[in-house]
Design a protein around this nucleic acid. Structure first.
Lengths: 213, 213
DNA sequence: GCAAACATACCAACCGGTTGGTATGTTTTG
DNA sequence: CAAAACATACCAACCGGTTGGTATGTTTGC
């Protein structure tokens, strides 16, 4: 997920800290990122940190929430939403995700996907915030998939939500593959397979009424 | 080597530490797992730890290497390899991975997939060991996919290796989804989609000579 | 003027790693 | 063969730097 600098009117310490958290946690993970690291990267002092966040964990929750808002807005503003056909929107989403696999790994990988691995068992609040972020994204995707199914016949026995989850899994897994040495190209290959799968599922493109699913 | 009349006391501190590393890192991640945590879980002292491993990072590399051996043997011994048809072996692999989605999350998730997220940018040796582990797994899968393609016609323009990578990505992504709140069921759903994709790719099952790919 | 927003200085606990040492087995050598 | 020399495996106590967090100012904006 691409998240550039937050467009904040005044660059207060809180926003700068959240920005630093995005960058550092995506590079090193959460546990390896110290409060001092964050303060240094943000150009603020520790006093400012603990003025805005009750604890390091609280910053992680805030960062996950901020990530949710930032990425939601980012994807909501993308052009693929303009397609009239919901299936084109679903495929357009994959294409859009392909198009943002640019630059450093830490520029396009997912903050909450990284964090949830460290937090799921030991930090319930952080895990919940990460889960909500991914879950919200799945919800949006589910709607377009649902609409695509209502319009086009699709092969197989599956739910819209399960396909939306699968799409997120492929994306998250593609990031791991990229980090494991494959780079952005390996991630792109995975998204191409995902696109092919969705196309195959909806291959026949029969109008719904001509074939009961 | 060793006289059978006087069996030497088994030097198992190393093995116990690696076992503890498997469990703790899969639960908490690498950075959050301290050397003291590992020693406590393994029932050994810090002195024993640094006798067997030069540093905490060296243990991580050893754990990744041990993971490679352990999982390679585990999958090599699985029954799905007995299928005569390579496509059945590929699908059998997915079914096998589905069958082991049991128990706690930390019992079936991937050590190196977890570690590489924390290590890829800051700990090159750990990242490399994790990459090699996933890469080796991909190599094995690639062979069966290659063979399946030689025997059956398949739809689309893709390489055996890219499909093997995609399979690993789905599996890794399924683990993230599970950790993000979906549990083992969400992971299973993803693997079902993966299985359906592979089946669709090879759907026609025409003998190779009757259709040039 | 006063509360929020920041800075400075500091701390107690913790962390990775070291030290000196023991107990036990193995190899070498007279 | 047996003593001496060496090697391996492990342990308890300790060390210095780091960490998340706090206590106490100082500045800024309304």
């Amino acid at each position: 997920m691409k998240a550039r600098t937050r467009p904040t009117p005044k660059p207060d310490a809180r926003a700068k800290l959240l920005d630093a958290a995005f960058a550092l946690i995506r590079q090193q993970g959460y546990a390896a990122t110290t409060v001092d690291d964050l303060c240094r990267a943000a150009g603020v002092t520790k006093g400012a940190f603990f003025h805005h966040f009750a604890s390091k964990d609280a910053l992680a929750v805030a960062a996950a929430d901020c990530w949710t808002e930032t990425t939601s807005a980012f994807f909501a503003a993308a052009a693929y939403h303009d397609h009239a056909d919901p299936l084109d929107r679903v495929l357009g989403y994959v294409d859009f995700r392909l198009s943002i696999l640019q630059g450093e790994l830490s520029d396009f990988t997912c903050l909450v996907g990284t964090m949830v691995q460290e937090a799921y068992a030991t930090k319930p609040d952080i895990g919940a915030a990460c889960g909500a972020s991914i879950g919200g994204h799945i919800d949006v995707l589910t709607q377009d998939i649902q609409a695509a199914r209502a319009k086009h016949a699709a092969a197989g026995d599956w739910t819209a939500r399960s396909l939306a989850r699968h799409m997120q899994a492929v994306i998250q897994g593609a990031f791991i593959l990229a980090k494991a040495g494959g780079g952005a190209e390996a991630a792109a290959e995975c998204l191409h397979h995902l696109r092919r799968y969705i196309a195959l599922l909806f291959k026949q493109r029969l109008p719904k009424e001509s074939q009961t699913q």
